[in-house]
């Protein structure tokens, strides 16, 4: 894929945000907040970083792979997958509807290209990504495996089982990212279950931690992901702490947990879309 300019990538982000809002609005269900906050990450990954092939192969041999552990960000993932050629953009209109491949949370059951494992029940994606990374090591395939987790998701114990394992087994072809937006469905993470010092925690578990402080700035996200790549292959798994704002891009949705799992109504949708330029054509 030929490299796109920062401006072009930013344009894809506004379209992704429009897609997400229109998708959750259409079925009056879903999770808009976090995918709005992760738009830059999704777009940077799929349009700039991944060495991938939209002609989908389940085993992903010879490709970089991405796993979405926090499956409730499905609307954002579906948008970026379709916009990068995995399936027709028009299919976004089937999101969360009966007989759709675009299930509420990602699933392989309906054979949607780009999805390799179901996610939604939290805490499982890091383990799966480690397994794929180890399969690549056995096959001497030097591509990378990426996984995104929510910060609230880190409250699941399995994540720390996986964290311990990846460092012990030196799974250094793995780049995990935590969407560090400080919000979860019941409120701010520090009120619900304080994550304390995440950087120190992951370092104590034996990971290389890479902070990406401006997670909603395309240039800084790309620079951060480049840095992460440079840290891979050195004996330690790599963790990006990606500082984002939930609901970023829409002034009345940003920085609160209130839009974690609630769709906008007609009026709110119109207001939100007014702040987001249609750059690639709505589905």
């Amino acid at each position: 894929m030929e490299k796109q300019s920062i401006e072009q990538l930013q344009k894809i982000c506004t379209q992704l945000r429009r897609d997400v809002l229109r998708m959750v609005h259409a079925v009056q269900s879903g999770h808009p907040g976090a995918p709005l906050g992760c738009a830059e990450f999704f777009v940077a990954l799929y349009f700039d970083q991944l060495r991938h092939n939209p002609d989908f192969k389940m085993n992903g041999k010879g490709e970089d792979l991405f796993f979405l552990s926090n499956g409730h960000l499905s609307a954002g993932w579906y948008s970026v997958l379709s916009r990068s050629g995995y399936f027709p953009v028009a299919e976004l209109k089937t999101f969360r509807k009966l007989n759709s491949r675009l299930q509420g949370h990602p699933a392989t059951h309906e054979h949607l290209p780009g999805i390799r494992v179901a996610s939604g029940s939290l805490g499982q994606g890091l383990s799966v990504a480690i397994g794929v990374a180890q399969a690549k090591k056995i096959d001497k395939d030097d591509h990378l495996v990426y996984v995104l987790m929510g910060d609230g998701e880190l409250q699941e114990g399995q994540v720390w089982e996986a964290a311990m394992y990846a460092a012990h087994h030196k799974v250094d072809n793995l780049i995990a990212t935590v969407d560090y937006n400080g919000q979860q469905i019941d409120g701010p993470t520090d009120k619900i279950m304080d994550l304390m010092n995440l950087k120190a925690k992951w370092e104590a578990f034996g990971w290389e931690v890479n902070e990406i402080k401006e997670g909603n700035d395309m240039k800084s996200v790309i620079a951060g992901l480049e840095k992460a790549k440079s840290l891979a292959g050195k004996g330690k798994p790599v963790l990006n702490l990606l500082y984002t704002e939930m609901g970023f891009g829409v002034d009345f949705m940003v920085g609160t947990h209130k839009w974690h799992g609630s769709p906008p109504n007609d009026e709110q949708l119109a207001k939100a879309l007014g702040q987001l330029e249609e750059t690639l054509g709505d589905y």
């Binding site: 085993n59 994606g125 383990s127 799966v128 794929v132 180890q134 399969a135 096959d139 996986a162 394992y165």
Partner: peptide, 17 residues
């Protein structure tokens, strides 16, 4: 860490193992 073991197994299976 059995939960992690099941997840890693799923990942290895994705990779063709």
């Amino acid at each position: 860490a059995e939960a992690n073991m099941i997840g890693i197994s799923a990942g290895l299976a994705i990779g063709g193992k």
